[in-house]
Design a protein around this nucleic acid. Structure first.
Lengths: 201, 201, 201, 201
DNA sequence: AATGAATGAGCGTTCATTCAT
DNA sequence: GATGAATGAACGCTCATTCAT
């Protein structure tokens, strides 16, 4: 399995297109096979079952997605700069591939909990990247130091994810990357040393 | 239809239980009927079709959910107090009904886009509540005044939603309501008057 | 059962209308009840089951139909005059009640063989009327005398029935009664003393 | 679809048998599949849906039926000879295939109007054959020349159809083909040059 | 007599997966 | 390796009939 890389890739790409075009529930294996230019049975030479296709789509696409972000922040020093880059790359990559955005934000979420568990495994390295930024931010005293890391990471991820999902559902009518500074401001402010309540003095 | 409120409620409750126990895709109408203690056909005296059951579950449960939050903040004045109450009630209500939490955070999201559209309609009043708080916060100068309201609301909703989803997926091992102050702090900080970047050092 | 004649009639009339409007397969008992202005359950105080309604419709309507024809020919003497009257009344009555024509020619034929057997029982007196005309015609030497009565009756009935059915299916665009002389000519010719083959000239 | 002729034929034959044995309404797809020796799903590789099976049965069987009649009369000259052949072949073919006779005369008529419309389309060539004979008969002065062709055709078809239906309903107790001369005599007499009314005496 | 809420059996169709070629 | 015909389990919904009121 997964030997001949070419056909494997073809099927993955076909799956993304088919799911983006037809929606999760109307994406039959036979449609993916047709789009990939192979026979239905051939799919099963490269993937264990339909579930495996979906997870593999996520692995392939998210693997690149995460690596792209990780490598972009590698040479940066300040946690809040890293965070800004992370947000920028997160938005930029999804804005650049509409099909992928549709698939990851809307369609793949219709899969059953078992598949979603596995998808979460794939996301784990991304969460680690976030956790590291938070830790660094606390060390650098860029962020408050009493932060509950998993909680903060959930807040950041939830914020980014919801914004992208809304953008996809609004049929990508506006420019997602334009939102980066606002989002970054919101998050860094939220994480920085606490002011007195109510602020404005 | 929807005449005899009693049986209608019975079926709604049964649906929540069945979906929480079996997962969205394994929730057959016949299972719901059995759990509700009625015949399969009886379901269709109260609901147009299966889809209608699911949407009604959301309407009933989220209707209460939102109303509970809305009425709790009605008598409060400060936007950040309102926000704290909103977060508290949001978490508290889902923490109090584990089945409902599973259904809304995990299972109902597997529905097709048509159902999800309708679910989003039900959520709309909640988003309005949030928008109002943000507007008030700006007027009261509790929040910065140049905020992009829809964007901020997405960030708040995304934050809360992701935290609850994580809590549900972690099988509710910890106390969700305990997280309220941290989350509230994160958000109000994020929204309050901007400090110099990076703050402390 | 069949006690209070009023409601019984109401239901029969409603059934004809419902079947004519909706077609046989879309004529649910509940629709007939609604049109008749009674509760579903009331139907079963007057009829054993749905099948009984359909047969009763046929009994009521065809009873009149046949009686009308029988009484019209009673005072006539010549078999071929009787035949002409029979054809005329047959066409005239169905032309006068479009709903009935639709129901008897098209819709009731979609019933299963069991019901159709019973419908045929209702038709029997009509066939006897035809048989009597044929017998008389032979005695009067208006028709050939070696006729196979059941066969001839089938030919006559088949001829009339097919013509009416075609007229109904053509949505009654032309005048059915206008066809009487031609049909009568065809049949009496067919039944009269045999000429040499190829006939007249 | 309809590729591998063998299985297609198997299913058609199975459908005829199942319908003849069980009646139209008790002929489930699964029964047809079982009788044909294929899986339920296989049916749908060869037919669009159940309706398509029924129409195809009619197309296949009636196609042959009509072609058989058409080719038999092709080399004949006199219209009344052609008519006799038509009646003979009509009766002979249905007498030779009892299942087919049951299906076409009784069961398929229970189908809804949509299917019956399509069945009528299939019959159209047969009606054209009849129309041609009538036209020729008039040209050859074998028949009267003022005939209303569609009406005459309806009378002929109605006659034949009713005779076959009666024979089927009488459970085929007598020999259908024996009736040919009588029926032919009735029709040609009916169509030949008019004698004075009442004829013989 | 009349109601109408409740019942529950019954079936066409889809589609992931297999396997003979 | 590649094919694609064949498989068969699974389920939402309808509607004639009943029966407590």
């Amino acid at each position: 399995m997964k030997k001949q890389r070419l056909k494997y890739k073809q099927i993955i790409e076909a799956a993304v297109e088919v799911i983006a075009e037809n929606g999760y529930h109307a994406s039959q294996v036979s449609k993916i096979a047709k789009k990939a230019g192979v026979a239905d049975g051939t799919i099963y030479l490269y993937f264990k079952n339909k579930e495996d296709i979906l997870i593999s789509v996520f692995e392939e696409k998210m693997g690149q997605f995460i690596e792209q972000i990780a490598s972009s922040i590698r040479h940066q020093n300040r946690a809040d700069d890293k965070l800004e880059t992370l947000i920028d790359k997160h938005f930029r990559q999804l804005a650049a591939d509409h099909n992928l955005a549709i698939v990851t934000q809307l369609e793949l979420r219709q899969s059953n909990s078992e598949i979603r568990q596995k998808i979460n495994q794939v996301l784990k390295p991304y969460l680690v990247v976030m956790d590291d930024i938070i830790t660094e931010g606390m060390e650098q005293r860029v962020f408050r130091d009493e932060l509950n890391i998993p909680l903060v990471r959930q807040m950041i991820f939830g914020t980014l994810d919801e914004i992208v999902t809304n953008w996809v559902m609004k049929e990508q009518k506006y420019n997602l990357v334009d939102q980066v500074p606002l989002v970054h401001g919101f998050i860094t402010n939220g994480l920085s040393a606490q002011q007195e309540r109510g602020g404005a003095n």
